[in-house]
């Protein structure tokens, strides 16, 4: 299909949509192909939707961590000059309503760890890690929290299957609002 025909087809589709869904509204949105959203489409969901191709284990992750994370979080996740709280451990949640929340004692889904590392870390250089580096770092932090073994491979298939210790301890506060 020529570019001109693509444009005509797209315009026709948008017109059809307008008629079907929003006959009276402005329809000023510019159509974009789902593939062209890819650079922003970085959310990794608990089911595994959004996880990229790649893999890593804790041994590899320890190297990435030392190079890219330790300056703030300290050696081996023990806490550092910028982020003093360790990245593992934490008391049982039964010890108080204000106990320190960690990956090991609180987080319900391992995909959250991948997702936040991917979108936000390193704090002053976000979205510079490769997929393999993110998988490896995720594996290393899960290993430090004694959730997986040192050589367990984390990838798009295995990550959603990691059973987080606190997964089943959440109460949805307002289920009727969902």
């Amino acid at each position: 299909m020529s570019m001109r025909n693509v444009l005509i087809a797209t315009a026709a589709a948008v017109l059809a949509l307008g008629a079907a869904y929003a006959a009276e509204t402005p329809n000023l949105g510019q159509p974009i192909a789902e593939a062209d959203v890819a650079a922003w489409d970085i959310a990794a969901l608990p089911s595994g939707v959004g996880l990229p191709v790649g893999s890593g284990n804790a041994v590899e992750g320890a190297k990435v961590y030392a190079a890219k994370c330790a300056a703030c979080h300290g050696d081996e996740g023990k806490g550092g000059p910028i982020v003093r709280a360790p990245l593992f451990g934490g008391p049982p949640l039964t010890e108080g309503i204000d106990v320190r929340k960690t990956i090991g004692n609180f987080w319900g889904h391992a995909t959250t760890l991948f997702d936040f590392t991917r979108r936000a870390m390193p704090f002053n250089q976000p979205r510079t890690l490769t997929a393999d580096e993110i998988y490896a770092t995720t594996a290393y932090l899960l290993y430090l929290n004694k959730i997986i073994g040192e050589n367990d491979v984390i990838d798009a298939k295995t990550l959603p299957q990691v059973k987080m210790p606190n997964r089943d301890n959440f109460i949805i506060r307002f289920p009727d609002k969902i």
């Binding site: 049982p92 949640l93 039964t94 108080g96 309503i97 204000d98 106990v99 929340k101 609180f106 987080w107 319900g108 889904h109 959250t112 606190n166 301890n169 959440f170 109460i171 949805i172 506060r173 307002f174 609002k177 969902i178």
Partner: peptide, 19 residues
């Protein structure tokens, strides 16, 4: 899933405390 989920007495936690 972490920051805005609240630990309750007894160790469970609220999630999706929208209101």
């Amino acid at each position: 899933a972490r920051t805005y989920s609240q630990i309750l007495p007894g160790g469970k936690a609220y999630r999706f405390h929208f209101l």
